[in-house]
């Protein structure tokens, strides 16, 4: 019995020393998880999450101090990406912190600007150009739309303008959303007593164009999303 105890004691000591050495020798600099989280954040540095920038928020998530739903500019996409990374369930955006808005850029009314440089100091990404007592202007391509310049302006000459849709940034709509539109339209048909119940729930946007199509079609047993594929 004593041999066994001795053997295990020695083993424990040796392995413990090995582990201790490995921990020192292969130490990872920085926080790899926080880096990964930081890479998923939109880097607007707007502070809407309650932390002074994206990096501190990433560190707080990595440390388990902050929830993943505190980034309004990133919105649903960011929350989903964070949930995937951390292996947790996505949750809706914390409504107290703001809501996901369409992207905007700051614009300075140069007629009104007094050249106080306060907005320049507030901009986290140096996207405002100007000098004391000379008017300032926003570098559109660099502006992240964080709105941090709006509050400091003493003459309220900064406006957040929605981005103009551009051809090469245009996106095809999600066909799913069209189906939802189609379902709305089908209500119009369902309200027509002549068409009866069959039209209910299927209709389609073209049902507006040719309601006869709806009637002549064969009856369908299930709605479009009854397969649960969207769940």
């Amino acid at each position: 019995m004593w041999t066994a105890i001795l053997v295990f004691t020695v083993l424990a000591l040796v392995l413990g020393a090995l582990l201790g050495y490995a921990g020192q020798a292969f130490k990872v600099e920085g926080d790899p998880l926080a880096d990964k989280i930081d890479a998923l954040l939109p880097q607007t540095q707007c502070g809407q999450c309650g932390y002074p920038g994206c990096r501190p928020y990433a560190e707080a998530i990595a440390a388990g101090e902050a929830d993943i739903n505190r980034c309004p500019p990133g919105g649903e996409t960011t929350i989903k990406a964070l949930a995937d990374l951390l292996g947790v369930e996505p949750k809706p955006l914390d409504a107290e912190l703001g809501e996901e808005k369409p992207k905007t850029v700051a614009w300075i009314d140069e007629q009104v600007c007094i050249g106080c440089t306060l907005c320049i100091q507030a901009c986290p990404v140096d996207a405002i150009l100007g000098a004391p007592k000379l008017m300032h202007t926003v570098i559109r391509d660099e502006c992240t739309g964080c709105e941090l310049c709006v509050a400091p302006c003493p003459v309220d000459c900064i406006y957040m303008l929605p981005l103009k849709p551009e051809l090469d940034q245009w996106r095809w709509p999600n066909p799913e959303s069209r189906i939802e539109i189609a379902e709305d339209v089908s209500l119009v048909i369902a309200s027509d007593p002549a068409l009866g119940r069959e039209a209910e729930g299927r209709g389609g946007k073209h049902a507006m164009v040719a309601p006869s199509e709806v009637l002549s079609g064969s009856p369908r047993p299930a709605g479009p999303r009854d397969d649960g594929s969207r769940a």
Partner: peptide
């Protein structure tokens, strides 16, 4: 013409 451009039928589950 409308006879050749029928309404997109409402998609059914895959």
């Amino acid at each position: 013409a409308s006879r050749d451009a029928p309404a997109d039928p409402l998609p059914m589950p895959c």
